[in-house]
Nucleic acid binder design. Structure first.
Lengths: 177, 177
DNA sequence: GGCGAACATATCAGGCAGATATATGGCTGG
DNA sequence: CCAGCCATATATCTGCCTGATATGTTCGCC
């Protein structure tokens, strides 16, 4: 599911500019969806070249031109086609967890601080997701956001319950050098 | 946390060839860690050029040469330095969830099948993680794998409990066209 | 008055995934 | 019995993507 398909999907809901699409990718769905300007703008250009979207430039006084993109019928078909493909495997990239794998190499105090910050971060995300769920958009969005909340909740609990495992390991290792 | 640092980290535990590193990335940690040959081999070459690892080629009869990499003291320092940096945000890329966002565009039967497959997939992952936890390596590894199990378990339960939300939406939408 | 954030688009370097190439030996199903 | 596939082992290439950087204006805050 590359950025082109993702943008096409967003445009099935509403017309938008590249900048607005980027804002969606920074919202409550950012854990699951993401794309940078460096991929969004080229993606939109290519979609337009393939006639899957149209682009109408609106001149704005004192602002750069705004380019509003709309999906075409051909674009809807192409998106449906992409959507019907078997989805690939999940990938949970987490630098925090990669770091935890080597917890025994870290100074115990540093490790504990890292975990504290992590727990705070999880709580913040949870709060944000709950806020987003309250104003809720479509059921589908609520479904996906709800899964995000579930995952963060479970992760938070696990962290609190099991941090001692890595922390005691780090203490042991630091005592040995 | 790029592939270079990841490889360096693996090499703090044990010497290995590029091929062996790839196998680690395909094991029970694959949800969190990943790297392809296309990034591992160049990463090892560069690490060797920077003298963070050494490389000793072992000729093998009837097999291509095996290049065994070992971390150097300089490499250990560099890895620790990378490990102490503040970890970046998690990113849970899931084509399945991206598809769920547009569940209303899918034929209801297709959607249900997708979710069924997904649930089966989660169960398979859970089983695999439980197996890996049983033979368990270091506490740190168990900690990370345990989090994986927790997340899959929570996701599984959420899916089973909430699938009707998207499924009824898809039914509604399909009735309207 | 200055600083940063929001608005809006665009490009570039470097990193990475996935496919492909090369070579060989062992296992399995037809 | 042999064709095809999988495991071992390294390497490269295409194309996509991230993160940084560039450009230029307006608004609000300190």
């Amino acid at each position: 599911m590359d950025v082109r398909v993702l943008c096409l999907g967003m445009l099935t809901r509403q017309e938008a500019t590249g900048y607005e699409l980027k804002k969606v990718f920074e919202g409550p769905l950012r854990l699951f969806l993401d794309a940078s300007f460096g991929s969004i703008y080229p993606a939109l250009n290519r979609l337009a070249a393939e006639e899957l979207v149209t682009c109408s430039a609106q001149a704005q006084a004192k602002r750069p031109d705004k380019k509003v993109y709309r999906i075409t019928p051909k674009g809807r078909l192409a998106f449906l086609d992409a959507l019907m493909r078997k989805p690939g495997a999940d990938r949970f990239r987490s630098e925090f967890l990669a770091t935890m794998l080597f917890a025994d190499l870290l100074p115990p105090r540093h490790l504990s601080q890292l975990i504290d910050e992590r727990i705070a971060e999880c709580r913040r995300e949870l709060g944000e997701l709950d806020g987003a769920l309250a104003v809720a958009a479509s059921p589908a969005e609520r479904f996906v956001q709800g899964l995000g909340r579930t995952i963060y909740g479970a992760a938070l609990e696990y962290l609190a319950d099991n941090r001692h495992v890595v922390e005691s390991e780090a203490l042991l290792a630091s005592g040995q050098n």
